[in-house]
Simulated assay, not measured.
Amino acid sequence: MSAEGLERRTRNYLSDNVPQIQDHGGHFQIEDVDEATGEVTVSIGGACSGCGIAPMTMRAIEQRLPDEVDEVTSVKVRRASGPRAAVMPNKTDEMEDMEEYSDYSPPF
């Protein structure tokens, strides 16, 4: 499969299975796709940058995408940078390492 095809399948999975990102004023962008290794990098931004469950959404994407898109072997999800990074101040950095959220499983 080509990187373009892998990117399209990744985008389709996120659009179809994680609609909360866009429904709540956030956005995602496929930053990089390595066809040879199956590694995918996704960034989320907009309202996601200040959302309390963003760390759990990021973790869920990292865990579920490889199970759903066969060619994906690993996923890195990060917050967007630049002009599309946030519509509110980022308040969730410290939450990413909190044990309370390590087992959270969003309903998507």
Rank of each mutant, 00 (worst) to 15 (best):
M1R: 10
M1V: 15
S2R: 14
S2K: 15
S2A: 15
E4M: 06
G5Q: 15
G5T: 03
L6T: 02
E7F: 05
R8W: 13
R8L: 02
R8C: 02
R8E: 15
R8D: 12
R8F: 14
R9E: 12
N12E: 15
N12I: 15
Y13M: 05
L14Q: 09
S15P: 02
D16L: 13
N17D: 06
V18A: 02
I21F: 09
I21L: 00
Q22V: 15
D23S: 08
D23N: 13
H24L: 10
G26Q: 03
H27Q: 07
I30A: 04
E31S: 07
D32H: 14
D32Y: 09
D32S: 10
V33Q: 00
V33P: 00
E35S: 11
E35N: 10
A36D: 01
T37P: 00
G38M: 01
E39D: 13
E39P: 00
E39Q: 11
V40T: 00
I44R: 11
I44N: 03
G45K: 10
G45S: 05
G46K: 01
A47R: 14
C48W: 11
S49W: 10
S49C: 14
G50A: 12
G50M: 10
C51V: 04
C51P: 07
A54Y: 12
T57P: 07
M58A: 07
R59I: 12
A60P: 02
A60Y: 15
I61H: 03
E62L: 02
E62S: 02
Q63M: 09
Q63E: 13
Q63C: 03
R64G: 00
P66Q: 12
P66W: 10
E68S: 07
D70Q: 12
V72C: 01
T73L: 01
S74L: 02
V75G: 05
V75Q: 03
K76S: 08
V77N: 06
R78A: 01
R79K: 05
R79M: 12
A80I: 04
A80F: 01
P83F: 06
A85V: 05
A86H: 10
A86S: 06
A86Q: 07
M88S: 07
P89G: 04
T92M: 07
E94Y: 07
M95W: 10
D97S: 07
M98E: 06
M98Y: 09
M98Q: 08
E99C: 01
E100S: 08
Y101D: 01
S102W: 12
S102H: 08
D103Y: 09
Y104D: 06
Y104A: 06
P107K: 11
P107M: 10
